[in-house]
Simulated assay, not measured.
Amino acid sequence: MKVSNKKIQEVWDEHAGEYNTVHNVSADAEREEWKNILKRYIGENIAQRVLDIGTGTGFLAFAAEEIGYRCTGVDLAPKMINIAKDFAKKNGFETELQTADWSNLPFQDDSYEAVINRCIVWTLFTPQKTLSEWKRVLKPQGKLLCFCPASSLEGKIQPDHYEKEIEEQLPLKNASPEQLCKTLTDCGYSEVEILELKELGKDDIFGGWYLLKGVKQ
């Protein structure tokens, strides 16, 4: 069964209206901690261009913009992007927001100093292709930062967002830290490691956070 982007868009469009209240309540409460983490791992130079993949309603992209980075956020789901755009307009954010296929990004090679994402890695149907595409748009020495919920790394089952036939096609759902690191290494990233972010609290949905990171040589 081949999964179409249209099917995935429909699923996340359906989640869009409740996404902030379900997924971002604890993140908003820890906004400063998230910003400190982004600054620590992206770097002090705020002139850097940052791409947030699977931006959803924009939490991570807007946090990065608040630091001063030049941000772009992309998502498969149009309704997610519309909510993010409305929030940006009401709150004065200038992040560029658009729908895009994560595995076929509409950007030139070597465009960004950092690619970031939150709760996205487990959803990849073609990790090798998609992670290689993210590497393509990174500049040399650019950084990939993947924020992964602890619930997906500690033997706990992720909530089923898709039909069973679709869920079974997710190679990285509940992948171990070792599997995730190997996947990045196999895609040509260097300095690959995964770190527990103890400064972020644990909640019933995510159970805490890990950072999977790598560098484009």
Score class of each variant (00 low, 15 high):
Lys139Glu: 14
His161Phe: 14
Glu193Ser: 14
Leu180Val: 04
Cys119Gln: 10
Glu163Leu: 12
Val137Leu: 01
Leu153Glu: 00
Tyr189Thr: 00
Phe125Val: 00
Ile116Asn: 03
Phe107Gly: 13
Asp101Ala: 09
Tyr189Phe: 15
Leu170Thr: 07
Glu163Ile: 03
Glu96Gly: 07
Glu191Asn: 14
Asp186Cys: 06
Leu197Asn: 09
Lys156Leu: 11
Ile157Arg: 15
Glu199Ala: 12
Ile116Tyr: 04
Ser103Tyr: 00
Asn174Ile: 04
Gln108Val: 05
Thr126Ile: 01
Leu131Asp: 00
Lys156Val: 03
Asp109Ala: 12
Tyr189Val: 03
Leu180Tyr: 11
Glu193Phe: 06
Ile116Thr: 09
Gly201Thr: 08
Pro159Phe: 03
Ser176Pro: 04
Phe125Cys: 00
Leu153Trp: 01
Glu165Met: 05
Asp101Tyr: 06
Asp109Gln: 13
Ala100Lys: 10
Gly188Glu: 03
Trp102Val: 15
Leu195Phe: 10
Cys146Gly: 07
Thr185Cys: 09
Cys148Pro: 00
Ser190Phe: 00
Lys156His: 13
Leu131Lys: 05
Glu178Pro: 00
Thr126Ala: 15
Val115Arg: 09
Trp102Ala: 15
Lys202Gly: 07
Asp110Thr: 01
Leu144Pro: 08
Asp109Tyr: 08
Cys119Trp: 08
Ser190Met: 01
Glu199Phe: 01
Pro106Trp: 09
Pro171Trp: 03
Leu200Pro: 07
Glu193Ala: 13
Pro106Thr: 10
Lys129Cys: 09
Cys181Val: 09
Ala175Asp: 06
Leu200Tyr: 07
Ser111Tyr: 03
Glu163Tyr: 06
Lys156Pro: 04
Phe107Lys: 14
Thr185His: 04
Leu105Asp: 04
Tyr162Leu: 03
Leu197Lys: 05
Leu195Glu: 14
Ala114Arg: 11
Lys139Arg: 14
Asp101Pro: 04
Cys187Gln: 05
Asp186Glu: 15
Ile116Asp: 05
Val137Asn: 04
Asn104Glu: 14
Glu96Gln: 13
Leu197Phe: 09
Leu105Thr: 02
Leu131Ala: 07
Asp101Thr: 05
Leu105Met: 06
Pro106Phe: 08
Leu105Tyr: 06
Ser176Gln: 02
Glu154Thr: 05
Arg136Asn: 10
Phe147Leu: 13
Leu200Val: 01
Leu144Met: 13
Tyr162Thr: 06
Ser111Val: 02
Pro159Glu: 08
Lys139Trp: 04
Ser151Leu: 08
Leu153Gly: 03
Thr123Gln: 13
Lys164Trp: 04
Tyr189Trp: 11
Gln141Asp: 15
Glu113Asp: 15
Leu105Lys: 09
Glu193Ile: 02
Thr95Lys: 01
Glu191Asp: 14
Gln179Ile: 01
Pro140Gln: 09
Pro127Glu: 05
Leu195Lys: 15
Pro159Gln: 13
Pro127Trp: 04
Lys129Gly: 08
Trp134Tyr: 08
Asn174Lys: 14
Lys129Thr: 14
Glu165Trp: 07
Gln158Pro: 02
Asp110Trp: 01
Ser152Gln: 12
Thr95Gly: 04
